[in-house]
Amino acid sequence: MTAPSQQKLKVHGSVVVTANRLGDGAVVHWMAGGGWSAELGKAAVVTNAQAAKELLAAATADDVNAVGAYIAPVELNSDGVQPGNLRERIRVGGPTFDLPITFGI
């Protein structure tokens, strides 16, 4: 996955603005009314470049609560808002293997 900082702003389908929370680094998403949520389901979802740009500008203006805001793809299905690519699935769901506590002793 191309690192989001290197992406040009092209929007296909649904997108959200995502970042990491300043204090603990947790994955958070920008909400429609402003502010951040750790739940992807609460994220503001937009479908065109202009709306995405505005969302990103609003999110980036908040440099104190979250850092590294960027636009990430999502998919909408019957379960609600889902991450739109492998990178975002890993960000939301964690590493794709068991953490090493299960190895060794």
Partner: peptide, 25 residues
């Protein structure tokens, strides 16, 4: 954390202490 330093100013300082921001944390 208080906002006195921007992320742009802070990032090299945290990196100088080995602190990166990765996907999850």
């Amino acid at each position: 954390l208080s906002g006195e330093l921007t992320e742009e100013e802070f990032k090299p300082l945290r990196l100088m202490n080995g602190v990166y921001l990765q996907l999850h944390a």
